[in-house]
Design a protein around this nucleic acid. Sequence first.
DNA 1: CATCGATGTTGAG
DNA 2: TCAACCTCGATGG
Length: 338
Amino acid sequence: MPEGHSVHRIARQFGRHFVGRHVSASSPQGRFADGAAILDGRTMSDARAVGKQMFLEFDDAVWLRVHLGIYGAWDFAGDVRGDPTTRAANGRMGQTGMRGASDDDAAAAPTTVVGAHEESLASIGAPRRTRLRMAEQETESAVDDLALEGFPPDPIGAVRVRLLTDSAVADLRGPTACEVLDAAGVQQVIDRLGPDPLIDDAEAGEDRMLARIRRRRVPIGLLLMDQSVVSGIGNVYRAEILFRARLDPHALGADLPEEVIRGLWRDWRYLLGVGVDTGQMLTMDGLDEEARRLALRNRADRHWVYKREGLPCRLCGTHIVMELAAARKLYHCPSCQV
DNA sequence: CATCGATGTTGAG
DNA sequence: TCAACCTCGATGG
């Protein structure tokens, strides 16, 4: 459910708090008991994201591949304070913003309350925990509850995998993929993926995406979602990138001018960077500051076209159109995007 | 309480 | 092309 930016942030979180640490692995839910047994007791040696795929490496080149799919979520807790990425990785990464528990929500959580309480918890030697699910829960009582909880906290819900160090815990629930692989298996997965702006060299990645789009007589709206064409773009970024390019989703890849395709790659690279830095899918930087502030206030209405079916286009007033494309909702402005 | 839907992918037909 | 997978907050009764 998270698009590429979230997965990169999760990998960063593992890199900061788990890599180099001895890890206890378990499957509280039971569905990954065999895999957890393989990982248990090893030291994590690397954490990498490619597009929406994440790979955690353990001793002896044993890898865990995780794909969150549409429901999946990592829930971090423990001594992870002082980490600028913490709040983004906290909470249920991957839930929709509408349901209040996305990385966007977590990233938007006020930092003052959290910091103050963590400070006091540390000073009394109590277990520290920074699981914060949504800004709305950051009340006095909610934080007091945190203080009463021990470490590690009991798993909440159906936890497929729990990775635990002496001071941090990560719970995985609802992934579409969760499997142990060897190095060759990891390479096989990566080989099937298109370029990722945060992994591939800028020029080489751009050329690769260009080549993969130009030889296909397939609508660009579908190609951007194809992870073998370019990695990490999901339904939100697809709609927003196409609007930002004023590009008709139905235009065929093979018909697009080279410079247009290169522009798509560069915009994706830019948006991904912003997303990784902020934990939010900020796609409206073209708006004037006041309009942007108003739009961001309501998280259900913070994009150019995504989920804005029937609403007036922010630029021309034409009703935004939604259609199903390959069973996914595709939004665009029929007037601006030609 | 039941049902719906979601930032996704796979594989059967 | 479409159902299945999988989880849970939101929604409606």
